[in-house]
Design a protein around this nucleic acid. Structure first.
Lengths: 239, 239
DNA sequence: TACAATATCAATGTATACAATTAAATAATA
DNA sequence: TATTATTTAATTGTATACATTGATATTGTA
């Protein structure tokens, strides 16, 4: 793999892990030594991560790791909601294609099969995870709205806000199954509305569907102190 | 100014102007010679413009200028609509601050004064343009939603989709005045809803407000053939 | 001591040489 | 002639030297 891509991935990972802390200053030379590359691929990585929103530059000199609070994540989920809602609406408005309908229903059928049994084993979780990602991808791409896709791609860069990272948390084991089932039922209703051409309903349902992401992380914990506590990407959200 | 910034601006301008055509391939060396700089700032500019959505790379080698159709622009306006709608809703939900209320009402008052007279002269158009930009900026920043701001910043990069470029078209002179007045009244209603804490209404009004952007460009022309004709950024939209 | 000017240092910006990769063109064979 | 190998050219990826700029430290003076 090209060095510059490796540095981008590695840096992004370390920021998400919290190995590199929010507010920390990133200097080219130090990073170059750290990754055993020249400054060139490092510079490339820094410009990209700035565009992606991971980094900011105060004084147009030296990059800083941007810090997220809990509010930033719920905000990102709201953004995801309105965007995916728009996607669902536009599909309904333009009329769903036969192939898209087929693929969406395939997702629903696979989910139905998964939920025939009881609680999820490891492998079933993975299957559901993939199906969920495919479902959301189909909606977003199916809208044919490039600006929407760009905006969501950017939003997904924000930790914990993507549909993927929402599907499951490591903890809250059995709760995951109930929540997934509920989310899957929402999928059914969304497709139903889209196929019926009920665009406003499709938008509202899809918008609401994003809210399960908030429940996915324990942001509604009993301790109100955690509500505004700054979090580091990668830090355990469930106490 | 730093070379790399100059190249970014210049390239973006030329793409918008249509001097550089959609689909065209951009090679580093050629651009470096064109702008009389080395490949380094050119590479920097290319990575940024790719992130901004101006360029794509098919084979992970060589950049292509992305082409927009009319549909892409109306889609971007829809995106702007749901995002600014969300911003208005969140301000209403969190409760508007006194300072934000003051600044928004200042915009409204300035608009009121402008519309006391008749049609706009050159200077009044500029004043309205600035006020409109300020108004939208206040809503978006006032939401305090960083993800939303990021998404909109990206969306604004798309030609003709930003609030600024929507305010006026060079042609359709007197029509501009009527449309601006209508838009200004919408501003009033949005602020009214926000101050009343009517979040759902604020969202709906702000979302609808974006639709004036579609009317701003003659996309609803009588000629249906233009509806799907590919356009080049910078090409005259009003026949 | 306090302040200002200068000098030193460190970091980023730029240019360029070299390496690696991919596309193109030519040659060779069936 | 068509198709495959091989070579050539062109383009991007990487490293590094040099230039420039902003920050820090030091020195000189009031």
């Amino acid at each position: 793999m090209k060095q510059q891509n490796r540095v981008v991935f590695e840096l992004r990972k370390q920021i998400l892990n919290g190995e590199i802390r929010p507010g920390q200053r990133l200097a080219e030379i130090a990073l170059a030594e750290k990754f055993s590359v020249s400054r060139t691929p490092v510079r490339h990585a820094l410009t990209i991560l700035e565009q992606e929103g991971y980094l900011t530059r105060e004084d147009s000199r030296s990059y800083l790791v941007r810090s997220y609070g809990v509010g930033d994540i719920t905000d990102a989920i709201e953004v995801r909601g309105v965007l995916e809602g728009l996607a669902a609406r536009q599909i309904a408005e333009h009329g769903i294609s036969r192939s898209l309908a087929r693929e969406l229903n395939a997702c629903l059928a696979e989910g139905d099969r998964l939920f025939e049994g009881g609680a999820f084993a490891e492998e079933e979780q993975a299957r559901y995870f993939n199906m969920n990602e495919r479902f959301h991808g189909l909606i977003v791409e199916g809208s044919g709205n490039a600006a929407l896709q760009d905006a969501l791609k950017l939003n997904d860069k924000i930790p914990f806000a993507s549909a993927a990272s929402i599907a499951f948390r490591k903890n809250a084991f059995d709760d995951n199954h109930k929540r997934s089932l509920f989310a899957h039922m929402q999928h059914h209703h969304v497709v139903e509305a889209i196929e019926a051409g009920e665009s406003a309903r499709a938008e509202a349902l899809m918008k609401e569907h994003a809210q399960v992401g908030k429940r996915g992380m324990n942001l509604f914990g009993d301790d109100p102190a955690t509500a505004e506590k700054p979090i580091y990407p990668g830090m355990k959200l469930t106490a």
